[in-house]
Design a protein around this nucleic acid. Sequence first.
RNA 1: GGUGGAGUGGCCGAGAGGCGAGGCUCGGGACUGCAAAUCCCGCUACACGGGUUCAAAUCCCGUCUCCACCU
Length: 307
Amino acid sequence: MTLIVIGGATATGKSDLAVALAKELQGHVINADSMQLYKGMDIGTAKLSLAERQGVPHHLIDVLSVRQEASVAQYQIDARNLIDQLLEQGIPAIVVGGTGLYIKAILDDLNFPDTDPEVRERIAKEAEELGADVMHERLAALDPAAAAAIPKENVRRVVRALEVIELTGQPYTANLPRIGSSKYPHAKQFGLVMERETLQERIDGRVEKMWEQGLVREVRDLMGGGLLEGRTAQAALGYAQIIKFAQGQMTEEEAKEETKRATRQYARRQETWFSRDERITWLKKAPTQELMERILLSSNASNIGNI
RNA sequence: GGUGGAGUGGCCGAGAGGCGAGGCUCGGGACUGCAAAUCCCGCUACACGGGUUCAAAUCCCGUCUCCACCU
């Protein structure tokens, strides 16, 4: 029973590799990309077409409407359920995606405290009125450790910390666990890397291609379908920029260049995120077939891909 | 050839004698229910050569380059 996780920056070829692996192992793919969760966001999230999936079952893709908000906590439940089911049936599970937090939520001992939209909204509103300093001071009084860990400028996190404290009466854990996977200790994690320069060229090329494929059209259609109603989906790379273009806040060319730039920056953040996970075996750019062989070799040789 | 204006870090751009605006890019980092999000840190420049001054990116002289206009 095999659980393989593939992470890494955007545009490194994760999806293709996952399909190749799944075909070889007769496994299923589980998406770990927060934006591929959305129905209709196909071109801009570089979602694999049905043909490209080559008959390999993909899970947690197209499960949300653009009006809905994605949530790590929900993702954690769904993904773990799915993995457990597959493994029970003896089907290899291949988790792929660039959303580091989502992957961590599957593997590590992350327990998301409850949330309450009303409480959150109230605190967020207070933050707007009172300012970041006041909120941070409030947090410092209630939970000094959390306040020390969260910069006052990061209002979003301060608000969530205050929400959790109010809801649970417990201190807020503001630091991610650094060590070990506790949920699936035998999962085998791989990361795809390539040189910055190469990656940037691929990103630029990919954005150009998305435009040719009709990303602007896709975004316009989604705007008609409620894209602006949810908070999460409209923030996606490419989508956010095209929305601005559609609203006359920038030209189409600017939207495209902005998308490239933002994607490059995103890739950097992804690398930072994944680089701190010492469980990952890094694979340098190579043809998909070769990468797959290396993964199989690595998994079998150590036999730790088996649970 | 003449007159006027301008030359600031990868880019944009303020400053106009007294300890180096700012933004963007880029690089590094954080990250427990929006994570393709949110946020933090770093990158010491003033075309070149002289001079004045305790002190010059800021003043003076010269050189080069660019832009306008004139002949």
